[in-house]
């Protein structure tokens, strides 16, 4: 069974149709990069997968859950689907440790001692063990984003979504975040990432999906797709991003 199954999704903002029948299937352990110009609908598609955006027609199944508006069922789905945002969105009034422990504690009733061990473990995974008691404002953007990844991992998700997670970072800080993501990918995590990092898509993602005008314009194994674009749109896009 696919980890993520998207079937003919349609989504409008007012009269503007941003997703015009998108279908996508992601196998467990697969890493899928979604690329495309701004306005192509790639972020909207990603946000549909954990219910941050609703859609007008179609069907989404994630980690064995069917997408729904029912709050209880949606929460069950979200326990299995982590998302990391462009703007990190750590909770500024909580320390790094508290940020990570909060959700397992309150949504899964994980005991305090266990949550603490879990937090230390995921923080070690992103290489920030020493920042346990720091506040987000005292961290660099790259560190905050790694904490945001750790916070998602503490929920033991089956699928991870990454929404342009390096776009807000200074170039010298993107590397440390991409490294953490690469490690996750190699560890077998199912990942969907919307990204502008073409090099990362090409080398780390098994599959790359090129979105254009609300549709999947072209998709395939990353190396093949980047080497031999079949459409002029992708060809132009890759060329524009190359320098």
């Amino acid at each position: 069974m696919p980890a993520v199954l998207i079937e003919d999704i349609h989504k409008r903002f007012g009269s503007l149709e941003v997703l015009k029948g998108v279908s996508l299937s992601v196998e467990p352990g697969q890493v899928v990069a979604i690329i495309g110009r701004s306005g192509s609908g790639k972020s909207t598609l990603l946000r549909c997968i954990n219910g941050l955006e609703t859609f007008h027609a179609g069907k989404i199944e994630v980690a064995g859950h069917t997408m729904t508006q029912d709050p209880t069922k949606l929460r069950e789905l979200r326990k299995d689907v982590g998302i990391v945002f462009q703007s990190y969105n750590l909770f500024p009034h909580l320390t790094v440790g508290q940020n990570i422990m909060l959700s397992p504690r309150i949504t899964k009733n994980v005991p305090q001692a266990e949550a603490l061990a879990l937090a230390k473990d995921v923080l070690a995974q992103v290489g920030l063990s020493e920042k346990f008691d720091s506040y987000p404002d005292n961290l660099s953007g790259g560190q905050q984003q790694r904490v945001a990844i750790a916070r998602s991992l503490a929920m033991k998700p089956k699928v991870m979504l990454f929404d342009e997670v390096t776009s807000a970072l200074d170039p010298e800080l993107t590397g440390e975040v991409l490294l953490v993501m690469e490690k996750l990918a190699k560890g077998g995590m199912t990942m969907l990432l919307v990204t502008h990092e073409m090099n990362f898509a090409r080398t780390v993602a098994d599959t790359t999906v090129f979105m254009h005008q609300g549709k999947i314009w072209e998709s395939g194994p990353s190396k093949v797709l980047f080497a031999n674009p079949q459409t002029p749109e992708l060809s132009n896009f890759v060329k524009a991003g190359a320098h």
């Binding site: 941050l52 979200r78 969105n89 750590l90 959700s103 998602s152």
Partner: peptide, 24 residues
């Protein structure tokens, strides 16, 4: 974005208010 982050972590609306929004 704080609401979105909280909802994405499977918090209920009440939990979002209690642990994320109201303290700020």
């Amino acid at each position: 974005q704080q609401w979105e982050a909280s909802a994405s972590l499977a918090h209920t609306t009440a939990q979002t208010y209690r642990y994320v929004i109201l303290p700020q």
